[in-house]
Design a protein around this nucleic acid. Structure first.
Lengths: 363, 363
DNA sequence: GTGATTTTTGTAAACGCTTGCAATATCATC
DNA sequence: GATGATATTGCAAGCGTTTACAAAAATCAC
């Protein structure tokens, strides 16, 4: 009744028999090689190679209750800003022989839940989430599961377990402060509708308000903002009547589109209109003019998360459960500074949350 | 010695005990629900909910030798053209309760091998590869494993098992024929160095040769071509001495960069220089002028692959092991047609390979 | 040599599920 | 009712590893 037959895979037993040792020895060959004598090891190796034996990790995981797998749940993969995080995670984990299982949750909340349940069936040694988890039922489920969980790309006030991210609100404020200094007052915001984009907008708006700057026009789009959104927003909101002198976008994509559309309208960047993006994707520096944006090191987020998980997997207690990787406002020609160079916001973090200063893992 | 303790997870035994049924019944509750009487089912459901029981898929897979997992090996995730394929795959598989494990192989061949071995330890019910597999040792290993394998984004002459892709050489020829018709003769190629980009170039070159058109200048880059590559290539190869009237790029990214750099040089697109890309990424249609490019439906590739795998998983024999999803030359303003509209190359495929016409899976 | 250590190896009991087979309950028919 | 068929349920033998514990072998200190 097997769907297709694979029964002839060599097992640890067949290898042990062929090598004239016990299964325990073969197991140790893979897991505790230092424990074997040189020539036992050699004998086993020979048989393993000859039979092309690959240990069945399912059986191993079942017996040891360690799967060497971490699960990642992200909304989507298609030109996603999280791709770099998965990459960083995967690269770091591979070094430790860990694998990644991926669940694409989409936007639908119900689907997210289903995916998570499915994931939990795999008994991963860790779960990586993007953003904070809203649904309390799911939170509870995760907490009770005992699986190390890392929320990323955000800094939730009340985390489930561990966190590797940054404060979107702080990003908004930093950009706000910068914008105030540039002196530009007629602002168009092109923004995604998600919670994180909203948090950035809130931080930004707060700073403007404190400085008596008129509220920006907002063009909001569901899902991550694209090149097309940027063009569209500019096409619609820049005309004879209203002409912003700064367009602030919730992604570099949108910023790029905005730039192209502004140029099409014969507006000069940055003389007539400045443009600011978010993400510092690889093309940002190569645009003309180069794009002022907020750099997030997605790869580092993944690597940090991996490092925390590996610590946990080795039984170490993780003291700093909240890692603020910070962000960097990278000032380039599309929105030139009043002050020269690059403003950097160093990870500050969670002194306010945890009552003590934090450091990243010493990986 | 457990890394962190999770021993208190409910098991099928505890659920069975609490519900006053046998473990077999609980198992059937999840796998063959139709087999249970209405009130047994209700009783089990109640306990399952109360205990928040999630079946351990490792144990299940071990017992049934079906993992309900498919593995994907792709070179990288960062702005990868394969992201859409993984997305399509994952979406389709989720419908059947299958999960995806991801292995990022990088470019290094040794690393690819290691990742593949690791993957095989998971005993996936299917393996998705991008491109053909070069190393014969790895091929053999895959063949002997009995795991259904799908090579994608290519149409290898001698496939390991199943294939879902298209002919890059044919793409090159189609573009070649189109270019010949446009009458442009001074061509600059911006190309990646990988085998597939090379195949496209070969097909393209062949058509040019047959038409007595001078060999193009080629700017070649390792890895997938980026926006920056496009700009760089144009910056270097377009000047007073040489001025191509067509730039053919191995990705929409590069095409986009090329366009921006051409504009910077005050060249008009397409009047002075036409531009052609590859991929039809979502921004391609939104550029100004819109980009002429080759559309590949990456999502469909993933969905097709999933469908083949699901068939295999249900024990069906797959007759059409080679699916040519074709491609489409989408003619837009950046390189206008001599003939109006859009030229389409329908899947043609593998009559030549298999000796009979092929159809996609009837999903 | 001897006894004490330290290394190396083996034995066998889990790990949590699936499933062939057998047993029981239910139902339609005559 | 009895009978045969069918719909539900249970029993228990695996699935391929890991690992505590014990045994055997090698090494060491005198």
């Amino acid at each position: 009744m097997r769907a297709f037959h694979r029964s002839k895979d060599p097992t640890i037993d067949s290898v042990a028999a062929a090598a004239g040792v016990s299964t325990a020895t073969v197991s140790r060959f893979f897991n505790e090689p230092a424990m074997l004598s040189a020539d036992t090891a050699a004998r086993v190796r020979k048989v393993v190679d000859a039979m092309a034996y690959v240990p069945n990790r399912l059986a191993g995981a079942l017996a040891s209750s360690r799967t060497r797998v971490v699960a990642t749940v992200i909304p989507t993969l298609s030109n996603s800003i999280f791709a770099s995080t998965v990459q960083g995670l995967s690269d770091s984990l591979a070094l430790h022989g860990f694998g990644v299982v991926l669940a694409l949750s989409g936007v639908n909340d119900e689907h997210f839940k289903r995916q998570l349940m499915s994931i939990m069936g795999h008994r991963p040694d860790g779960i990586i989430l993007t953003g904070a988890v809203p649904d309390p039922a799911i939170r509870a489920r995760l907490e009770v599961s005992g699986i190390p969980t890392i929320e990323t790309w955000d800094l939730p006030a009340d985390p489930i377990d561990m966190v590797v991210g940054f404060s979107h609100e702080a990003v908004g404020r930093a950009v706000g402060r910068y914008v105030v200094k540039t002196g530009r007052r007629r602002i168009l915001i092109v923004s995604a509708g998600g919670p994180r984009a909203l948090a950035r907008r809130a931080g930004f708006a707060k700073v403007l308000r404190n400085n008596g700057i008129p509220l920006p026009t907002v063009a909001s789009f569901p899902g991550p903002t694209t090149y097309g959104h940027g063009r569209l927003a500019v096409a619609e909101h820049v005309n004879a009547t209203t002409r912003p002198n700064l367009v602030l976008c919730s992604s570099d994509w949108a910023a790029h589109g905005a730039m192209d559309e502004l140029r099409r309208k014969r507006l000069r960047i940055p003389e007539d209109v400045a443009v600011i993006g978010f993400g510092d994707l690889d093309f940002a520096a190569e645009l003309d003019p180069a794009l002022t944006t907020v750099k997030i090191d997605g790869n580092a987020i993944g690597a940090h998360a991996a490092s925390l998980l590996m610590k946990r997997a080795q039984g170490e207690r993780v003291r700093e459960k909240i890692v603020d990787v910070g962000f960097e406002l990278v000032v380039r020609a599309s929105s030139p500074p009043d002050l020269a160079g690059t403003m950097t916001a160093r990870p500050r973090g969670s002194a306010k949350i945890r009552g003590r200063p934090i450091r990243g893992p010493d990986s």
